[in-house]
Nucleic acid binder design. Structure first.
Lengths: 251, 251
DNA sequence: CTAGAGGTTGACGCAGCGTCAATGTCAAGG
DNA sequence: CCTTGACATTGACGCTGCGTCAACCTCTAG
């Protein structure tokens, strides 16, 4: 008693193409092949096919299924291993979902898809007026010379670190952390160190002066072009507060 | 000011192969191509590349990214759509994880990888003794004739539904539902209707008699060959209890 | 005899590159 | 000038699991 290829396909709830594929990779051979080339399958094949499909619904790969069915691998062990992989995948999805969500809120928060900001934010010539007005011509000239002296690669890696910091600030703000929390102060410290690396900054190379550091925080809030880098006015306000706390404690 | 292919690759944290791929699919063309065929990229390309990589880390597909970057699609809308897809994927993983877990426990519960059971479980000739002893020769003969009369295809589809029911019973048992819960009683009703379709069953075609229905539940517990179909003795006990509640209420 | 249902073997397509392979180019050193 | 080594180029296969033609037999019923 045997069936044609479409017969078992229907019996098992799959397609003839799949059966041919399984035959091709040696996962399930027809019981018998007619002189006309037709494939025929018997009950043994049907049972095997069902087991294959069962395992496939669980997400196992065909090679793994082959090993299990041929008794080369313990089925429970295979499934447990597969389970770990599934759970890892789920965690990956979770973090990705979180990232997408924060990105959406950031975009809606007015940042556009960053990018321009991520470069222009560092092309501080854009902020020449503010810098000169607050800290003088010399500060701007120093800073400008420093920026121009960097190789493209250096600029980039620097930009990346900046973008990273901005993102973490925005995240922290979104989580509504207190400005004097450890996490926020950690970020403030990094902000301080980041500024310490920029010639033209009042206080360089020992790190920004208290006045400059606090003033910068105010500027982030006052100027939305800066604010955009920290999650908008709300984010910038959080950054300013955290920076002020840091200044009070250390500067 | 432009960079060679490996330069931007490093700047952006990707590989030259990826850049060539993006060029090939028109997602990111080199700013300029030297007479020697070398690709060169400028800052504009770098910005675009960064945006591409940012979106890719979120899991967007390259075609979707292209649409967003070319302004054909609103970025927020694209991300929201993507978010839905991610969440659907996560749900898929969740159910698959649950399936794998129950399958593992079922196997450890002594069922092997079912399959044989899934066919033999219906090949009730195996249970001839029990059937005859409890309900008489005639019941067995009727049932047997019915089974033999089915085409292979019919047998299969019937087997599938049986297997499905068994699996759901096992799941319910694993969730430790009360026997009189709605879910359990739903299953009991399906069990009843399933039996109603089998000639040879005392009470056919109006559905099994109360006596038969309750007795069958007892047999599931008493005979581990039956119990195996419902998640072992524990599962079978649950099935029996649910069936008894059902009988008390409706038969 | 013919139509139509069903079977066969290729082979491409998909997503996103990794990974050779075969070969050209450029800057530095002998 | 030649060599070497780093870096570039264009193919093209590989991976996962089949869906989906395409071109071409085979069997059955009318």
């Amino acid at each position: 008693m045997d069936w044609s290829i479409n017969d078992i396909a229907r019996l098992a709830g799959t397609t003839s193409r799949t059966l041919r594929h399984y035959g091709a990779i040696g996962l399930l051979d027809p019981t018998r092949i007619g002189s006309n080339g037709y494939r025929y399958y018997d009950e043994g094949a049907l049972v095997r096919l069902q087991r294959i499909l069962l395992l496939r619904e669980l997400g196992l790969g065909l090679p793994a299924i082959a090993e299990v069915l041929d008794g080369q691998r313990d089925d429970v062990r295979a499934l447990v291993g597969h389970l770990h992989w599934l759970e890892a995948e789920k965690r990956r999805l979770d973090t990705q979902i979180a990232s997408v969500k924060t990105t959406i809120t950031k975009i809606q928060g007015g940042e556009g898809l960053m990018a321009e900001e991520s470069l222009n934010g560092f092309d501080h010539t854009q902020y020449k007026e503010e810098v000169v007005a607050r800290w003088g011509e010399q500060a701007y000239a120093n800073s400008d010379a420093w920026w121009r002296s960097m190789s493209a690669e250096e600029k980039k890696s620097w930009s990346r670190s900046q973008l990273q910091l901005g993102t973490e600030w925005a995240d922290a703000a979104a989580r509504a952390l207190p400005a004097d929390s450890d996490d926020a102060q950690q970020l403030a410290r990094r902000q301080f160190e980041w500024l310490a690396g920029i010639p033209g900054t009042p206080g360089y190379p020992n790190g920004p002066t208290r006045e400059y550091f606090v003033g910068l925080g105010e500027m982030y809030v006052a100027d939305e072009r800066f604010a955009a880098n920290y999650g908008g006015v709300e984010g910038a306000t959080f950054v300013r507060d955290a920076m002020r706390v840091y200044a009070d404690r250390h500067l």
